[in-house]
Simulated assay, not measured.
Amino acid sequence: MTILSEQSIRKFKQHLKNGSNDLGIKVSEHQVELMTLHAKELSAWNKKINLTAIKDPLKVAEKHFIDSIAPVSFFENEKCLMDIGSGGGFPGIPIKIMKPSLKVILIDSSRKKVNFLKHVIRTLHLENIDAIHSRVEDLHGNKVYKNKFDAVISRAFTDLSNFVELAFPFLSDKGSVYAMKGKNAEKEITSEISKNFDFKIDHYLLPFEKSDRYMIKLFAKR
């Protein structure tokens, strides 16, 4: 991915604006600038560590950034979010850019990726957000994180049953799991999930390639 030339940067920004508008999400000029800076750092670091296989700037805009901000349409009054398996910062950093008041914790088991995430956080001057190097399971007993989050989100991190098992120890009493999935999302709703959780499935299309995306929101039956 090379987002270096002025022409590439202009195209990236316009693609980001147009695609977000198509999803009904208004992105300010400042937010576009922050996401562009994130994309530049992703490009630079991707030459050293494997952060993304997507290299075309317009596909990066759609598949990483536009897809990452889509969840803000489905959020309610969450104040504290954990992003599991954040990798290159998706969806957590774009969500933070769109919702600056949200406290965000990014979790990844790769130290190199966490170093990248911390670098982006510093570079973008984001506040009330941090990246933690850890296996998710190792944090389950940590009082700093246990039952502290209104929402736990992931994007194609693992299958839904495993993600639910990993995520629920971090949720507060009224917290929800948000799983970002592709076209086979509904097949991941097992009988065990249906028995133990209430859930809602929302559908959206990536605006340019028209790929199906699903947001599965799960919460404990009350």
Rank of each mutant, 00 (worst) to 15 (best):
K55C: 00
K174R: 13
K148Y: 09
K96G: 06
S194I: 03
I193V: 03
K11S: 14
K181I: 06
V144L: 13
F75Q: 06
E33G: 00
Y178V: 10
N142A: 02
T52I: 08
G175P: 01
R122L: 14
A179D: 08
N115D: 15
N142P: 09
N18S: 14
G88H: 09
T36V: 11
D159Q: 14
H140W: 14
S134K: 02
L106F: 09
L106D: 01
E165M: 02
Y204P: 11
G88Q: 09
S5R: 08
V104Y: 04
S5Q: 05
E127D: 13
D67H: 00
M35V: 06
G24A: 06
K174Q: 14
E186P: 07
H38R: 05
V104T: 15
R213S: 02
D150R: 04
K210D: 00
P71W: 02
L23H: 07
Y204G: 10
A179C: 06
K210W: 03
I69F: 03
D83P: 12
L124D: 05
T2E: 15
H38N: 05
L205Q: 15
N18D: 15
S154L: 11
N184H: 14
V120G: 01
T2M: 12
A44L: 13
L171H: 07
N128F: 02
F90L: 13
V144C: 02
V104Q: 07
Y214E: 05
N115T: 11
E165N: 13
I121K: 03
E62H: 05
D22F: 10
K99F: 00
V27L: 12
S176C: 13
L218Q: 03
G87A: 09
G85Y: 04
N115V: 00
A39C: 04
V72P: 03
K99E: 08
V177H: 01
M82A: 12
N147V: 03
